[in-house]
Amino acid sequence: MLGRPNRAHPNALALRAGASRLRRLVLGLAGVAAFIALWKLAYIFNWAPRGTIPDPFTVPVALLNEYRGGRLLPAIASSLVHYVWGLGIGTLLGFVVGLLAASLRVFDEAHYMLARILRPIPPLAWVVFAIAWFQVSHAGAAFVISIGVFWVNYFATASGVRDVDPRYYELARAFGHGGFFKRITSITLPGAAPSILSGMRTGVGQAWMTLIAAELLGVPGMGQEMNSAAGVGAYDAVVVYMLAISLIYTLSDGLFALVENRALRWRP
């Protein structure tokens, strides 16, 4: 369509698009309201062991309490430290190893068996070693997070690089870009970028999943706060942290989507 509006009824089309967006919004809000209603019912009628389902309507109060108590922001900040380091290191290493695996045959052959042995080990299984090597520390949490992120990026990069159309490499040779560096920068990386970036974006989510689990072991952060809140039966505070995680993930994913769209704006 190349962004051209339908010349016949531009207003009618815009109106219909607006109506459809409104409908989506209303139905979406209705879905959330229905969920909260169900939750409230579960709370009233004790569908779970007494005291383990918080009153949804007290969650805003709990949020205020966590904030005033000086727990919410430090926990978020601490979690972000693990998150950024774990995500950064895992992404970088996954990208480099994936790139090497897909572009150097010797490396590929030397590492595939090792990769097959290590790959199925869940990141959280490494917690034991994280504690042994780094004690209960930021570094330990970042280590565990980076492992999950590493694999996601490793596979995305390796398969993206392998899938670059070989005809482009022929073009590169024909037009003086046959050398290793020129080939990588002019063909391999841009050609594999959609896969590499989608791997990075999956990693942004994957890091959150392991983050909380890594922190449940006692490293300061939202995971630890959830654990200690649950310990005293403050399940409404647990929900506060769950929502905080959801919000931060949505923000970081949205931010990354912007970067991704910008980098891949050449796509139809």
Binding site: G176, H177, K182, G191, W266
Partner: peptide
């Protein structure tokens, strides 16, 4: 065999580096 990630100008200039 135009490179989809390069604008037309950059495609035309592809062989000019070096």
């Amino acid at each position: 065999r135009l490179l989809p990630w390069r604008r037309i100008r950059a495609n035309v200039g592809y062989g000019l580096s070096g």
